[in-house]
């Protein structure tokens, strides 16, 4: 067993150069957090891609809660206020909307959407 020895010459102490500490791989450096505002925007723009969805409202009616998302760890819950074309099968539209938005949020942020509430505040057309 060799212990590093400090050689003393003329009052100065020379220590062996320290090995640089190995850095973690780049993908593990730092922490990425997706803010709920970002999730809300992704969800709203994904929702607007469904043909039956006429409009996605960020703010709801004055007495209801607005569209939004809440991120906890890798889980997100989303609430969307939308206007749907009438006549259309509302539950089928909601199911398609849910599938599309959940897929899009997972694809873009890696978050798992555990709950997506759909509030149809208006029906348009006829």
């Amino acid at each position: 067993m060799s212990t590093p020895t400090a050689s003393t010459t003329g009052g100065t102490v020379t220590v062996p150069a320290q090995r640089p500490t190995p850095q973690p791989p780049p993908e593990l450096r730092g922490r990425t957090r997706v803010e709920s505002v970002v999730v809300t925007k992704i969800a709203c723009s994904a929702a607007a891609e469904i043909p039956e969805i006429q409009e996605v409202y960020f703010a709801g009616l004055p007495w209801t809660r607005s569209s939004g998302a809440e991120v906890r760890g890798d889980q997100a819950t989303i609430r969307l206020n939308v206007s749907v074309a009438y006549p259309s099968r509302l539950r089928a539209v909601a199911a398609r909307l849910r599938e599309h938005v959940i897929g899009r949020v997972a694809e873009q942020t890696g978050l798992n959407v555990s709950r997506l509430d759909v509030n149809m505040i208006d029906l348009e057309g006829g």
């Binding site: 009616l61 009438y86 006549p87 997506l116 509030n119 505040i121 029906l123």
Partner: peptide, 15 residues
């Protein structure tokens, strides 16, 4: 558990 779907009664009535 995966979410609720609601439709505004006023919106439905208007439509």
């Amino acid at each position: 558990p995966s979410g609720a779907t609601e439709v505004s009664a006023d919106g439905m009535a208007r439509a």
